[in-house]
Design a protein around this nucleic acid. Sequence first.
DNA 1: CTGAAAGCGCTTACAG
DNA 2: CTGAAAGCGCTTACAG
Lengths: 333, 333
Amino acid sequence: MEISKKPATIYDIAKLAGVNASTVSRALSTPGRINKSTAQKVQLAAEQLNYRVNPFARALPTGRTKMLALMVADITNPVFFRVVRGAESAAAEQGYTLVIAESQESSQLEAQTLRRVLPMVDGVVFASTRLSDDEIRVVKSEKPVTLINRELTGIGSIVARNESGIEELISHLHNLGHHRVGYVGGPQASWVNADRGRILKAKASNAGIELVDLGVHPPTQNGGRAAFEPVRAAKVSAVIAYNDLIAIGLMNSAVDAGIRVPQDLTVVGFDNIFGSDFTNPPLTTVESPLELIGGEAVRQLLVALEDSNDSTGPRPDTKTKLIIRGSTAEVCK
Amino acid sequence: MEISKKPATIYDIAKLAGVNASTVSRALSTPGRINKSTAQKVQLAAEQLNYRVNPFARALPTGRTKMLALMVADITNPVFFRVVRGAESAAAEQGYTLVIAESQESSQLEAQTLRRVLPMVDGVVFASTRLSDDEIRVVKSEKPVTLINRELTGIGSIVARNESGIEELISHLHNLGHHRVGYVGGPQASWVNADRGRILKAKASNAGIELVDLGVHPPTQNGGRAAFEPVRAAKVSAVIAYNDLIAIGLMNSAVDAGIRVPQDLTVVGFDNIFGSDFTNPPLTTVESPLELIGGEAVRQLLVALEDSNDSTGPRPDTKTKLIIRGSTAEVCK
DNA sequence: CTGAAAGCGCTTACAG
DNA sequence: CTGAAAGCGCTTACAG
């Protein structure tokens, strides 16, 4: 329980090992280029002194901080947990530290946070951003950037492949006998919402299902509650929500209105968020490989940074898949 | 869309403003100690050059990085979301950046992560840690530390005041006519578990309720499922779980076994995690002011760091409170 | 393979 | 109030 004394520097090591500080530096960071026994001597001394490199001192001459920023709109949104987990472990694997920054759904706060964080990181992955295409390009002009679930020419991105899950979903609904189903859309500006809507429309039409557009809504439980009236008015036997949160809000309002799920109304969501399995009934949903996506986003960023690395390994398949639970049933008429 | 050119330094500003670099430094960080018009000239030049201080260059001479680490056991555990949110915004408020580090419930991984992160932060708050008392003291010997929901002499900490919520809970159960209730404990080593258990026992005994100890369990849904057998064997009319996750697992198993909640068995949890309101039935739970606690933890850390500040404002009350939902009912016999 | 030196961008006593 | 200088702990050409 010593009182915090100054940590050892390479000069302390140099003295102890009887070599020059530059040799210490090399022995520690590029041991290949140095006499084996010298390197060992240095490493031993470093250990004795409980040496740890000062990351800032290293960052100054190299310009590299070994930190990455992960930008999310809302830390408390369960959709991001798995993204964060995947990103964090991919970063740690390569000795990088992740700074998680939150925009709180405000583009102004996001810009401000970015201004604080950008100078201290080597690159940023946007898991969700309120920034415009142009603003993203400005960031990209300063540091490498990768985008999650948004595409923008000239910028690396990784997105969930919604086709596979939606294919399964439409076929599931078709088998259940649904012919007229509603889509409760998410935010207008959301790339993901557009993607899901487009694919949904195509697959539904292929299957001879009429897809009714039920408007755009906030991606929250309240958004789902507010969407209930349009849903009821549309006289659909099934409804697909932009995400699980909306689906859950929708189910609540339906129950309050005396509509039974799934007997009277089939409901499905997207994401398979934490808790979607203990709704009543448990929610049928299309799941994205969020953890994989988070990990892949930082891996992509890292090859841009360490350009030595395997330039581009095979991109993993980010396919989505349907998880069938209790909120979908045959149309009974 | 310029190709990333080198960011401006204080020397660029110095040249543009026609002063010495040290004057620039002072004008930017301690504007009070400098001629007003000089300061303005400098600030103008800084703006023109779109200057942002290099945090690492600043960190070297000062030893301060303006970064804080927040250590959690599991990023995907919903209990931490609000802690993170509170900590993050308290940090941002003072211009600090939060690094969230995850131990993944492994003390080895935690130690390793700490080794990577500790050199780059000014202090650390442990939201949950697998470290032993002694290990925490070692960290504390290097950097200021504050603890959430754990007490350790000599180390600043902030804990939820479980009395208030438990008081309400016991009185609620008492009013409902329960006389024999079980406690499904959490991890043996958890400070919070011990605290809740102790208070529960005291309050129950005051109210003439017999509290049956149902053992220690992992704080997860599976833990809750596994706890169902002991619960049933104990022949209690109500059960209190260490946390919501356990309570939810317990409810699942009960339903599977044909036991109705709350008619046949009253269930209550702790934490009020995301999703606990849409279980079936919605879970009655004791809520902690997690966001406040997270914020207060970093604020405490910050006064230790900036010792100039208001040495110690009044500590906010971290009282817990009962949220009554559908999983509790009168004992019907 | 190794040393001596310069430099990364800032801060901060020390003079004046 | 301001300048000139030293120093924070590392890395990396440049010699040898």
